[in-house]
């Protein structure tokens, strides 16, 4: 039958399931700490000493919530960096398309250039507001993701990249912005997951 320390470590590992590598590491580290504490108990090693060691350690849920809050901060930072990179590459790709189109003539669609431009501007505006006011929120990042995806799709339609031949640098820039929007999507989903986990761990009961 599992002892008090084993049960506590199992609970903490379960609460840290949002980061499996961290959960494995903490299982070993926390178990060593708790056995040290139980052995140092004035009454000597016993189930009661294990219980006291666990009580002094704090609630597994609260410790996991602190780890989750740090994970949110790190993930938010990575997501904002991904957004910045996506905006920069999208801008470069947009300029390359415009330069190419000025030589060969504009697109099949009247609407695409407008969406391309204004969706990009909207992403910049929402991104700036989000950075200053809602840095740890998923909403401005999700809006930026949507508007940038719209801008990229419109830009590709505008240039007719999928039906006509285009210079390699224009195609490479388009591939870069598609890859970065995929990366941004992964980061936004990851941030949402960490935020939900943190909220669950902080919920009483």
């Amino acid at each position: 039958m599992a002892g008090v320390i084993d049960r506590y470590v199992a609970t903490l590992t379960r609460d840290l399931d949002f980061d499996p590598a961290l959960a494995r590491r903490m299982a070993d580290e926390v178990a060593a700490h708790l056995w040290d504490a139980a052995e140092a108990d004035p009454a000597g090693p016993s189930p009661e000493a294990e219980q006291r060691a666990v009580a002094r350690f704090g609630l597994a849920r609260e410790i996991a919530a602190q780890f989750a809050a740090d994970a949110v901060n790190r993930q938010a930072k990575r997501t904002w960096i991904a957004l910045l990179a996506t905006v920069a590459v999208t801008f470069v790709a947009m300029r390359l398309r415009v330069m190419w189109l000025s030589d060969v003539g504009d697109s099949l669609s009247m609407l695409a250039p407008l969406i391309d431009r204004y969706a990009f501007i909207a992403a910049m505006a929402v991104g700036a507001i989000g950075w200053f006011a809602f840095r740890r929120s998923v909403l401005p990042l999700a809006i930026c993701l949507g508007t940038l995806a719209g801008s990229i799709a419109a830009g590709i339609v505008r240039a007719g990249l999928f039906v006509e031949g285009a210079p390699l640098h224009v195609l490479l820039a388009a591939a870069g912005e598609i890859a970065l929007i995929g990366l941004l999507l992964c980061h936004v989903v990851g941030l949402g997951r960490f935020l939900r986990r943190t909220a669950l761990l902080r919920r009483p009961g």
């Binding site: 580290e29 926390v30 350690f57 704090g58 410790i63 780890f67 740090d70 790190r74």
Partner: peptide, 15 residues
């Protein structure tokens, strides 16, 4: 302080 509080701090400082 609760002893477990030290581990998020250690992890954060290592990161």
């Amino acid at each position: 302080l609760p002893e477990g509080t030290i581990y998020p701090a250690l992890h954060r400082l290592e990161q």
